[in-house]
């Protein structure tokens, strides 16, 4: 078990390192850099083209003239040693500040959506499998497929329209006006919860539908296994034997979904957050990518990927705890 944990931790560190390289490189792949972008903006705003030596000077200031591996090395060593993520060229602020401001919101939203997805998908999946081809199964399957098929930004738009039309207020943002800039307090937290459920449902919708199908299919496979018959022949009640045996077995793929649900949720969060104007990392990351604000973009991507890798790690540990076959190899 300890060996397994150690090995997995090693893999995890390696994965994060590869991600950091890729995210840094990919961001610089599009032609041009922040300076070309800046100059283009100035020209389109009616300014004159800058002299090319001034342009070169700008690049020198921002460190854009160094070869890429030098830039990468500077960037990553500052993150590791000082926790500095560089400077946002667009917002003219410390990138770390920007990230710490936004990332907890994204995390709260993703985690909330994740809990929502599990809490809804688990019982419905079990129900759908046990009562296969019943009316309830068909209803949930129908709703599930709609949830899968409709992109969540569309759901967000529909929801915006409905809330505006019938409640006379657009349910956007994560805080009420009076709390938006207030320091953290209990009422502010409650206010957050009051707003959070809407994006949570909108973002979680697709994942829920997918997970219901996964759970249903897994459980259907397990329900007719011989060990279920053994358990029944002992005289256990149907509910007890269902929970102890087939559901426990069907849980394995369910748990390993933690890994791949997280990136999905974070990806879905970007568009929904833009539509609903949420103070999460999604919109900022989107802008940073568009304006080649490389430190902010790379920082976000690095941290989000790290979270995802950690999520996968957690799910692997959970699997080992749940299933002796994995634990004992």
């Amino acid at each position: 078990m300890w060996k397994y944990l150690l090995r997995r931790t090693g893999y995890m560190v390696f994965t994060v390192w590869v991600i950091s390289v890729i995210s840094f490189v990919v961001i610089q792949l599009p032609p041009g850099d922040y300076v070309t972008n800046l100059i283009n903006q100035m020209i389109s705003a009616g300014g004159e083209a800058l002299p090319s030596d001034y342009e070169m000077q700008l690049r020198e200031v921002y460190g854009l003239n160094d070869p890429m591996y030098v830039q990468y090395f500077k960037w990553i060593s500052r993150i590791i040693t000082k926790g500095e993520f560089g400077y946002s060229l667009v917002y003219k602020r410390d990138a770390a500040e920007l990230i710490t401001e936004r990332l907890p919101m994204t995390f709260a939203l993703s985690f909330g959506s994740f809990l929502f997805v599990w809490a809804v998908a688990f019982p419905i999946g079990v129900y759908s499998a046990v009562k296969k081809y019943s009316l309830g199964d068909y209803v949930f399957t129908f709703i599930g497929f709609i949830g899968l098929a409709v992109p969540n930004f569309l759901l967000a738009l529909i929801f915006l329209f409905l809330s505006y039309r019938y409640f006379d207020q657009a349910m956007i943002g994560l805080f009420s006006l009076e709390f938006a800039d207030a320091p953290w307090s209990w009422p502010k937290f409650m206010d957050l919860l009051k707003h959070l459920w809407i994006p949570v449902i909108l973002i979680g919708m697709g994942g829920t539908a997918g997970l219901i199908r996964t759970m249903r299919a897994n459980l259907l496979d397990e329900l007719n296994k011989p060990y279920v018959e053994t358990a029944r022949s002992k005289g256990l009640t149907e509910l007890k034997l269902l929970m102890k045996y087939p559901v426990r077995h069907a849980l394995n793929p369910f748990v390993s979904t933690i890994g791949w649900t997280l990136p999905g949720l974070i990806g879905g969060e970007v568009i929904v957050s833009i539509v609903l104007n949420l103070p999460t990392s999604g919109p900022v990351l989107y802008n940073a990518l568009r304006s080649q604000d490389m430190y902010v973009a790379a920082g976000f991507i690095l941290l989000l990927s790290t979270l995802t890798v950690i999520g996968t790690f957690v799910s692997d540990i959970l699997l080992a705890v749940l299933d002796p076959r994995i634990r004992l190899e």
Binding site: G235, T237, H249
Partner: peptide
Amino acid sequence: PKGKEIRDIRGKEISMIFQEPMTSLSPMY
């Protein structure tokens, strides 16, 4: 088949062993 009466008999007064010892016991416990 789901009632208490028969469940009290199963595993106590009438019990059963199955064909597949490989899969008749759950690997989880």
